[in-house]
Deep mutational scan, measured.
Amino acid sequence: MPVRRGHVAPQNTFLDTIIRKFEGQSRKFIIANARVENCAVIYCNDGFCELCGYSRAEVMQRPCTCDFLHGPRTQRRAAAQIAQALLGAEERKVEIAFYRKDGSCFLCLVDVVPVKNEDGAVIMFILNFEVVMEKDMVGSPAHDTNHRGPPTSWLAPGRAKTFRLKLPALLALTARESSVRSGGAGGAGAPGAVVVDVDLTPAAPSSESLALDEVTAMDNHVAGLGPAEERRALVGPGSPPRSAPGQLPSPRAHSLNPDASGSSCSLARTRSRESCASVRRASSADDIEAMRAGVLPPPPRHASTGAMHPLRSGLLNSTSDSDLVRYRTISKIPQITLNFVDLKGDPFLASPTSDREIIAPKIKERTHNVTEKVTQVLSLGADVLPEYKLQAPRIHRWTILHYSPFKAVWDWLILLLVIYTAVFTPYSAAFLLKETEEGPPATECGYACQPLAVVDLIVDIMFIVDILINFRTTYVNANEEVVSHPGRIAVHYFKGWFLIDMVAAIPFDLLI
């Protein structure tokens, strides 16, 4: 008679799926529990143990900040960024110097990925580790590398530091407007667009060049630039800015003055950032001319202004700041037409079709709590990747769950009947059967004279019903998954307890 339990259901295979997918890609990662103190490590794979030199037993239950890997060259700011990422709910990448158990130093890129439950609360953290440099290539500990984003994938490793954006290309926007319009339909740009040429040739750093990471940081200074100062900065030398009595002219307006920039070969870094931020506020060169004239017309309804409409929906549905990093990277690809469009465009503009998908598509409701890094690593669709929660398995109709209350009560009843059979069957065979043979035949009273025979008949009927119930009862397979398919249940029961239950259900007393 089957006594099969499996009270692990309803099970959740999400954690096993993450481990299996990460292991298949030869990654070095740990999984931490966000619900406990210090976000203790609950799993670390073999790749991480080989990377740091510690065994799994030495890593388990330690804080996922990996303070046991810190050393003299470990930056405090990087460690603080990892700790801050564990307090938030967004994906974050941090470069930090770690030390192995043998004392060797290596520069590592740590990717902190939160995993949320159905309520939107962070319950786990996945920390992925990628070695960037070994100890002989690690720089000085005073050099802070965590304020910069990861290198873009479309640049060669040897040319990542030679990417320079020439400031004269930004200063000569109005001069290039006529050349853009003359391109017409034969050019790649839309009317009114501004073409910015980027020099990728390796050259020595000069005062006129600005690194790509500095251009990325310009967006942080746009908020500090007032509207009046932006307007004066875009007017140009024809209309000098008016300053109040006793007030000095704005240095932001002076930063885009061609006369002032041409007199000296070098520009201050602050002026460069502010000038680029001011130019980015204009949607095209037409807006710059309109600002000089004193009238700013409404933005025209053409394809170039609607190019950012799908980007707005993608940004609203993005799951991490990696989408913004990807957008900034692609927006700086050289030799393309940049349409400086305000994100607050007309909502009635139709979304044009684009061959290049900048932001990841909208994630469906079932995966809105899973970050983009987890979705990318697992390579699963929205119909396959579940949320991290207890999910009731989908069972067929008329199927009994093996952990249901009805099955528990039924098993206790069958257990009592088995005990009765084990006690009274030998007793009936030894004593009652002998008395029946010696006594007179009682054929007239039937079952009324033999109450134990009636009980034995009921017990046999219950055993037959138990066999039928076992054909529709779920079970737990070797992978700790609840199986509810009727065919698989029948095959599993035939290979197991079916023969024993059938022999126990045969009414031998009635056959004798």
Rank of each mutant, 00 (worst) to 15 (best):
K21P: 04
E118S: 08
P202N: 12
E214L: 07
R366G: 05
S283M: 04
D102L: 01
A188S: 06
A97P: 01
L315F: 07
L171W: 13
R301T: 11
N257F: 14
R326V: 11
T201L: 06
Q75N: 15
H309K: 05
I123E: 09
C276Y: 03
R280D: 07
L200V: 12
K364F: 06
E50A: 12
A303I: 08
I96V: 11
S379R: 05
L210C: 05
L338A: 11
I288C: 15
M218E: 12
D287P: 14
S26F: 08
A285N: 15
A83Q: 03
M137T: 15
A290S: 05
I126A: 11
R269M: 12
C44R: 01
L167S: 10
Y54L: 01
I96P: 01
V279I: 14
A253F: 13
H7F: 08
S322M: 07
F98L: 09
L86I: 15
G158I: 15
R252N: 05
P237F: 07
S209K: 05
L248Y: 04
R356A: 05
S140P: 15
L15Y: 07
F163W: 08
P352A: 12
D46P: 06
R20F: 05
F340D: 08
V195P: 06
G381R: 03
L171E: 12
K135Y: 05
R356Y: 08
P298E: 09
A268W: 12
C39E: 01
G88K: 14
F125D: 01
F340Q: 15
F125L: 05
E365K: 14
T145E: 03
V112D: 01
A282Q: 15
K93H: 07
Y99C: 01
Q376K: 10
M137S: 14
A307Y: 13
M133K: 14
D342C: 01
R242L: 12
P157M: 11
N317G: 11
V196S: 01
S278K: 12
A142K: 09
V370S: 01
A175R: 15
R328L: 04
Q25P: 11
G24N: 12
R301K: 08
L267E: 06
P241E: 08
D321M: 15
L109I: 08
E91W: 13
R280S: 15
P334Q: 07
E372N: 14
G103C: 12
V279N: 11
L316E: 13
A382L: 05
